[in-house]
């Protein structure tokens, strides 16, 4: 043992029982999340919604695409139609379950792709700075010049409809904002002394990016991306609503809203159902990302 008067070693009594248990970063995030009941509730809600969508083929009581001319626009609770029927007499429960599959996929997958691509560009731009940054970020600015809905409509319009194209459209629309967040976070981390300390130890750029930069950029980017899920769902619904996304008769919340809107005076509540589904899902995602942001914000 050295003779240096140490913060701890000379004082076992004061240090014997640290007031907080030593936990890792994710441990402390979970510990904060654990008491955030709103976030936990919304997280549960999202899990339920995802499970419902995943198990739609087994859960839905009827074929979502089977129409019945006799039972058009029935109210909620009409006979075996728990939530009524749409303008072609299709069961709303089944259509909402099946539509959730498409809508959730449209909400989550483009965000995942955009986070990977946009995050990578952002980290590179933020770390290297200078000309590299200028080329990447000015390119992103071009996309930023258009309102996101307009951009989505323009891209989807030129690519044509279909699930694949819709997903591509959403990914392209979501890349610039994620890239910008990643770039800001990276350039902030880049300026911190521990990056210089790593450089001073002779580490290569790749090593520094992976060992020091990414883990610090991850949480702001993840939190931001999670807020985009709801935006992506709404954008996707919007595209379907305009006829630029999924084509009928496939069930999709946006498309359902679009086709049901003519019947708004006949069955207002049934008409509102897909909108309510979009609303609940996007609010749940937003609140979860809000809770995540608070839980991941480690200062002191």
């Amino acid at each position: 043992m050295s003779v240096i008067p140490a913060d701890s070693a000379s004082l076992p009594a004061a240090q014997g029982a640290p007031a907080t248990k030593v936990r890792g970063y994710w441990g402390s995030v979970w510990n904060r999340l654990r008491y955030d009941y709103v976030t936990l509730f919304c997280l549960g809600l999202i899990i339920v919604i995802i499970l419902l969508a995943v198990f739609a083929p087994w859960l839905s009581p009827m074929d979502p695409e089977k129409s019945s001319m006799a039972n058009r626009l029935r109210p909620i609770g009409y006979k075996k139609y728990l939530l009524g029927t749409d303008e072609q007499g299709r069961d709303m429960v089944s259509r909402l379950l099946w539509g959730g599959r498409v809508s959730l996929m449209m909400g989550i997958l483009p965000v995942v792709f955009a986070t990977l691509v946009g995050g990578m560009f952002g980290v590179v731009a933020g770390y290297y700075g200078g000309k590299v940054n200028m080329v990447i970020m000015r390119t992103m600015d071009i996309f930023f010049a258009f309102p996101s809905v307009l951009l989505a409509v323009a891209i989807a319009g030129s690519l044509g409809g279909g699930i694949g194209n819709q997903m591509l459209t959403l990914t392209v629309v979501l890349i610039p904002p994620i890239c910008r967040v990643a770039e800001t976070a990276t350039s902030q981390v880049r300026a911190l002394d521990f990056v210089d300390a790593a450089r001073a130890s002779g580490a290569s750029t790749i090593s520094i990016l992976f060992s020091h930069v990414l883990i610090n950029v991850l949480s702001p980017v993840l939190v931001y991306s999670s807020t985009l899920v709801s935006i992506s769902i709404i954008l996707a619904s919007g595209l379907s609503f305009l006829g630029l996304g999924v084509s009928p008769p496939t069930a999709d919340w946006g498309l359902m809203l679009s086709t049901l809107r003519q019947s708004i005076y006949v069955q207002p509540i049934v008409t509102a159902l897909p909108g309510i589904a979009i609303l609940i899902t996007s609010i749940a995602f937003n609140l979860v990302s809000d809770g995540l942001r608070q839980a991941m914000d480690v200062k002191a």
Binding site: Y25, D193, F194, A197, N216
Partner: peptide, 11 residues
């Protein structure tokens, strides 16, 4: 380094 806050990787 001087600033003990930014000189260690918080993660």
């Amino acid at each position: 380094f001087q600033d003990s806050y930014s000189s260690l990787n918080p993660r």
